[in-house]
Design a protein around this nucleic acid. Structure first.
Lengths: 133, 133
DNA sequence: CTAGGAGTTCAACATTTGTTGAAGTCAACC
DNA sequence: GGTTGACTTCAACAAATGTTGAACTCCTAG
């Protein structure tokens, strides 16, 4: 059963314009009717939901395209599973990065010297003895 | 000791154009010389580093402005500490969100039906019996 | 005092991720 | 076969986050 842009959009919770955008950027692909209208597959509903989840994980459209390019058209359950695992891995990577930032905030280096007596900035980084006039 | 745009940029590891951008958006503020050149304070080096860290946490410039607006000019160590704590809290929030996405990927709902025999899409979501001609 | 590097403003460009509107075409239902 | 809602393309706009360039001015060093 072929889905129109509107069908797919409704079923996956996005705007039709977003569906067209994803197709234009190679995240989705569609057959065309003789009158040039798009017809999607049922599996594209899943594909589209994956796109949205991947975006929430923090992937750009280009990155999502990469991971979806490994997905055969009409994928088997194992294909979806591998895709899910790769998203999980990516999410863990993003969490690690956030935890690293946490470390930088709370950690030893203090992000800044919290005191500011006299020479906060090493003089060699200063272009010269600027004043305010 | 007043810092020029270039001084501040070098000391905090950003581009001078970014410094001007941050000032234009209220994240930084500067005195002006009689010849209209910006002069920043030493504390602005810290401020700018905080901006970059906050961005890595995922805050937008508008959001960073909010948290920086609570910061007095020439802040005391306690002010920096409170700011750091609020960034830490925000980072934890982002981590939680990622973990929630993780739950959605691996969790019960399966994100999609992994089987696709016949009726993946409930018929009432389909606009009608579309074919491909 | 003057030269030259660094500063100024402003507009344009760049990228990402879409949305909106106009003008025109399709296709499902009666 | 008509009507009408949904589709098509294309261009323009939008917001965020800057960068780049032109044209011009400043200020520090010598």
């Amino acid at each position: 059963m072929a889905l129109t842009v509107g069908d797919l959009a409704r079923a996956s919770g996005v705007n039709p314009s977003a569906v067209r955008f994803y197709e234009a950027h190679g995240l989705l692909s569609a057959e065309r009717t003789s009158g040039n209208q798009r017809r999607f597959q049922d599996a594209d509903v899943c594909r589209t939901k994956v796109i949205r989840v991947a975006q929430r994980v923090g992937l750009s459209v280009a990155e999502i395209r990469q991971v979806l390019d490994d997905l055969p058209p009409d994928p088997a359950p194992g294909d979806w599973r591998r895709l899910a695992e790769s998203l999980v891995a990516e999410a863990h990577r993003r969490i690690s990065q956030l935890q690293q930032v946490l470390g930088e905030i709370t950690g030893g280096e203090k992000l800044c010297e919290l005191e500011e007596p006299a020479g906060l900035l090493p003089d060699r980084l200063r272009s010269s003895g600027r004043h305010l006039a």
